[in-house]
Write a protein that binds this DNA or RNA. Sequence first.
DNA 1: AATGAATGAGCCTTCATTCAT
DNA 2: CATGAATGAAGGCTCATTCAT
Lengths: 208, 208, 208, 208
Amino acid sequence: MQAKIQRQQALNDSRRALMLDAARAVFQRLGIEGASIREIAKAAGYTPGAIYSYFENKEAIYGALLAESLERLNAAVEAAGRVEALPFELLRGKANAWFGFYAANPRDLDLGFYLVQGLQPRGLSAELNNQLNDRLHDALRPCEAALQAMGLAPQAALSENTALFAHGVGLLLLQHTGRIRMFGQDATVLFARYLDALPGRLASGASA
Amino acid sequence: MQAKIQRQQALNDSRRALMLDAARAVFQRLGIEGASIREIAKAAGYTPGAIYSYFENKEAIYGALLAESLERLNAAVEAAGRVEALPFELLRGKANAWFGFYAANPRDLDLGFYLVQGLQPRGLSAELNNQLNDRLHDALRPCEAALQAMGLAPQAALSENTALFAHGVGLLLLQHTGRIRMFGQDATVLFARYLDALPGRLASGASA
Amino acid sequence: MQAKIQRQQALNDSRRALMLDAARAVFQRLGIEGASIREIAKAAGYTPGAIYSYFENKEAIYGALLAESLERLNAAVEAAGRVEALPFELLRGKANAWFGFYAANPRDLDLGFYLVQGLQPRGLSAELNNQLNDRLHDALRPCEAALQAMGLAPQAALSENTALFAHGVGLLLLQHTGRIRMFGQDATVLFARYLDALPGRLASGASA
Amino acid sequence: MQAKIQRQQALNDSRRALMLDAARAVFQRLGIEGASIREIAKAAGYTPGAIYSYFENKEAIYGALLAESLERLNAAVEAAGRVEALPFELLRGKANAWFGFYAANPRDLDLGFYLVQGLQPRGLSAELNNQLNDRLHDALRPCEAALQAMGLAPQAALSENTALFAHGVGLLLLQHTGRIRMFGQDATVLFARYLDALPGRLASGASA
DNA sequence: AATGAATGAGCCTTCATTCAT
DNA sequence: CATGAATGAAGGCTCATTCAT
């Protein structure tokens, strides 16, 4: 009996994963506005009704997708850089990891800022929202640690890390919306330059 | 006769403005996805059909709203700083002008990044889109001029200005989505710090 | 006073005629389904509301247009053939007159069969409908007279005339809907052939 | 399993047929212009959305209705006359078959000439339109064959068949619109007379 | 007589969601 | 568990018509 339940559970999980994969593919193809339950179900080889055995509603799919996106983000960051590297090189590696992840997967960026009805959280339960925030924070923590290793006090490292994240996100947004073309610039180049300038800034005590 | 036509024109404009106000309010309340012609009409005290005497379609409303927002942005930037100020002070004044504008009017930021289906341009005619892009560029040009006045070559000034804009936008986004609270930071403070550090960065030749 | 009223009446009529001209042009351009009050008003240089000073509603415009079309039809038929011609030549002339009118002005055919919701009379008052029927009949009477002059009894002439009209209308319809192309035939040629064969048919007593 | 799928398929088809029946009834009652998805759905006992599970859009309903009408027409023509009959009797039988079909089902005539915006083809895809044209042609082919069997050359048979079709259609139109009453004539009688006179016409070489 | 503003009913269509089977 | 049918609410938009001015 116990075994049977476990088997069922496993089946269940894998079907849910299947649907999530389908949803991701649909989001990729049609964007968040264009994705419909029908389309996701079709992509997963199910009928629309079946979706509701695995997700309470459309927002829940979105939430699950975002959660999973953040796991991939964390994985990318963890895989980057070597712990024994010089602190600054570690920072560079970790920062480029999250930046590169979003540059390569702009739909994940959409996802992260979706909920975000007109850019403000909605839909998700407060609890889930917190969980997701935490996972995002996790992905950025290695950079913060590296900044501390470079000699910054915890508060200063936090500030610097926030600024770094904001800078990257701003560049990604400009890139993704095509606005950056109007400046004839490239997001990746500018991000690298920001990182290069960081040690100088820190030395000159700006973030003290 | 002349007077009558003028009066009519004025009435017409004010009704259009009324509808635009209503649209802005609805966008504010329901977000861009939630805003419908029916809802906008209701907010303006009209029936849906009436809207179409003043706007060709829904996208046109959005376009008008954005155009008007960009005019206010430009006005804010123009009003800021004194021309006879030191270049760096001028830069600070102009940059704080656009940053402050969006910090105070976060929905205008949404608007600016809407077009943006899943954060990608859509809907507007290419021509209008270009016009709007140009007006955004206009608002940022004074900063670029100031950077040149500080001694940067045109190319370097452009790069630096782009980075500055991205930084501000990133901070505004984090602020607007509440993500910045998760770092316990404040967008305005961090933006000021970025500006303070600029001369140092430039001196150290980072953007060469 | 009297004179003033007459002047007003004349003005009125000419404005009504102007609107009718505009309506005809719009029907020509956009077809019956595509014609809207707005469009007609615009073409006439008026606003929609003004139309209603001259016509009770849209159907009334249609009725007036049809009435006028029938007048033109009658004029065309009257102008055709010479009374002193041989009866058969007269028949040919008159028949080609109405056939040619509709071949050259297919929209007038639409008009004539419109009312005709799914091809059944509607919209017009019974009285107006009768008037219009009478005028159509008037246009066909010369053919009937010619048939009698060719020796047919009144009943036989009526039958033959009806058949002739039906034949022509059938051909015009096939032509106008493009169906005749599927046979690789030409309406005018076939109509001429039908007329040519008429004397033979009559002689062989088919319509006795 | 197989049986289940078949049952489902059958159910599906019958529901589609039900909707088609409803659509036909609505067209009957309100004419083609007056028929709306709402109205059709209501007549079928459904909500508008349900229609779209069975038809892609409104034009598709119209197309299906016409296709089915043409199948019934072909069936009627095929069932008529005996192959071993004298050619002229065969012609009479086949011609009366299509004429009788439309005389008994005038709305099918409307349908056939609808597409026809202001009597001009529209709406249907070119491909479907061609298919439908072909099926109409199929229904008329037996008459053409009979005319050839009566001794006409292919070209002459085609001409004669086209004229025959036009004649019948013209009569049906006059009948259907009530215009024929204004002549005090009967379409069926006149069509029979046209057929009776055919051999004489052919003998006298009119269509040579 | 004409305007111009506005209405209200209607149009086709889409879609998240429910529920009996 | 999944289906498949269906709903109901909503979406953008059009248009004949009315009416105060």
